[in-house]
């Protein structure tokens, strides 16, 4: 905190290159249907990118640790929100005996309906869109 940290240009360039690479990863991975993991992978890549920006471009790594605490707190609250909400969406309807409302949420992004259907290993599957969320049954 007492001294202003000067980051070498090299570091900036490496981080910039990593960000571009990770952007590529985001686009590439979106074409692979990983089922429920789609969102997890997308968020993971986005979190890594945001952290790189915060730590290096915004100097959080060398800054007062109070600011880091604030940043981590915001991540923690976000984590609480997502985790507890998933307790609802992942188990919605699980005690309902009527199979029609058993799984009331469409957990797949509409985007994947436009892609040729593949299983988790990327192999094409010729199945109609009604059974998308039962990926594991297609092996």
């Amino acid at each position: 905190m007492s001294e202003h940290h000067i980051t070498p240009l090299r570091t900036y360039l490496i981080i910039a290159a990593s960000l571009l690479f990770l952007s590529g990863v985001t686009v590439w991975v979106s074409y692979i249907d990983l089922g429920p993991l789609n969102i997890v992978v997308a968020m993971l890549v986005a979190t890594i990118k945001a952290s790189l920006v915060a730590f290096f471009f915004m100097h959080l790594l060398w800054d007062d640790k109070k600011n880091l605490t604030m940043f981590l707190m915001s991540l923690m609250f976000f984590g609480i929100f997502v985790t507890i909400t998933l307790l609802d969406t992942e188990f919605r309807g699980d005690l309902d005996l009527n199979p029609e409302v058993k799984d009331p949420i469409n957990k797949r992004a509409v985007f994947y309906d436009t892609l040729p259907l593949t299983d988790t290993h990327g192999h094409p599957v010729d199945e109609h869109s009604d059974n998308h969320h039962e990926d594991k049954d297609h092996h």
Partner: peptide
């Protein structure tokens, strides 16, 4: 206060599991 919001939603159709947790 950040962990209890679901108690406003007990009749919303959220999962029974999250109702118990909340």
């Amino acid at each position: 206060g950040f962990l209890v919001w679901g108690h406003h939603m007990f009749t919303s159709g959220q999962s029974v599991f999250s109702q118990i947790v909340f």
